[in-house]
Computed example of a mutant assay.
Amino acid sequence: MSKTARFFEMKRRGAPIAVLTAYDAPTARAQAEAGVDLILVGDSVGASMLGYESERDVTLADMRHHIAAVRRGAPEAVVIGDLPFGSYDSPGAAVASAQSLIEAGADIVKFEGAHLAIVEALAGASIEVCCHLGLEPQNHLEKRVKGRSATDASKLLADALALDGAGMKLLVLEMIPEEVAAEVTRAVKAPTIGIGAGRNTDGQVLVITDVLGFGPKNFRHNRRYQNVGQIMVDAARAYVRDVHDGDFPAEENLTHMAPEELELFLRVNA
């Protein structure tokens, strides 16, 4: 059964699709409870959670590990898994890598770029595909807005239409002008999910660590809903203070032996 049929229906009705990234079971569980429509296990896990320099450092094993964790946390959720850099250099490699992510728990796989043969190969293997145009973090080392010129915007639209014809089921549009995203969204049948692409896509996606404010850096396209990074620092600092001052553990954190068992223990081991 198609995992993306619901999102086509949401596009038809004009109902916005809410997408967030997740990389672990507790986060996925919270997002499922909150009603997130679609969970993306993105290669953003590399810089966001694993301390890697870039998305290019993320491996297929990394993606499998985090997809499996998300699936355990949200067993009923629809989950997209990113194909990492170097794992889809040919249609055959893409199918093998995608099947590996599906086995780990993904419902849909995502890759970057206008590779029609890869979409066709994945669709031929009954794997639903999310494509990704605009800023491609795996391929564009300079993180800047794409599609600003009429020529670049026309190329992006043509690529989107070609991918749509090849059978993509979703399309992420990253860091492109709002007007371009609106035209792509109008032109393609597949639901579009924007990040830094304005208000007129069929849905929105943000990186959960950006939403929660894990680090000091914020982005124009992001909305920070909590400052969890500072909360973590404050909590760790309070814990360190309590340990150093002898205030933790306290009586409420302890377990005691029954008096008669303690007496016997001490007598036997005297």
Score class of each variant (00 low, 15 high):
Q99M: 15
C131D: 13
L116P: 01
E112D: 10
V79L: 15
G134Y: 01
L101H: 13
A121F: 06
F111N: 07
D82E: 13
C131R: 10
E120Y: 03
V79Y: 01
N139H: 12
V129Y: 02
A114P: 12
C130K: 00
L60V: 13
A114S: 13
A104H: 09
G86H: 04
E55Q: 11
I118E: 06
H115T: 01
L135I: 04
Q138E: 14
M63I: 08
R148I: 07
G51F: 05
R71N: 12
L122I: 08
R71H: 12
E103D: 15
S126G: 02
E53V: 05
V95L: 05
S97Y: 12
E128W: 01
V109Y: 07
A150S: 08
V109F: 09
Q138M: 13
G81C: 06
P137A: 15
A69Q: 15
E53G: 11
V58H: 07
A150H: 08
S149I: 00
V70A: 14
Y88I: 04
I108M: 02
A121K: 01
N139G: 00
G81S: 11
F85E: 07
G81T: 10
G124H: 08
I127D: 03
G113K: 07
F111K: 02
G86V: 01
S48Q: 13
E103F: 07
L101K: 12
N139D: 02
V79T: 09
I108E: 03
S126L: 05
S54I: 12
D82V: 10
L122Y: 09
E53L: 02
H66W: 15
V95W: 08
Y88D: 12
P137Q: 08
L141H: 13
Q138C: 06
V95K: 05
K110D: 11
K110A: 10
L133V: 03
S149G: 02
V129L: 02
E112R: 05
R56C: 09
V58M: 04
G147K: 05
S54L: 08
L50Y: 13
P84A: 08
V45Q: 13
P75H: 09
V70K: 09
L122Q: 06
A96V: 03
H66P: 02
L133A: 03
A150T: 06
A61G: 09
G51N: 08
L116G: 00
G73N: 12
K110I: 12
A74T: 15
V45G: 00
D89L: 13
V129N: 06
E103S: 10
V119E: 00
A47H: 01
A61N: 11
L101R: 11
D107F: 02
G46E: 11
V79H: 02
I108D: 10
I108R: 04
R148F: 06
G134I: 01
G46R: 08
G92H: 09
A123S: 14
A74V: 13
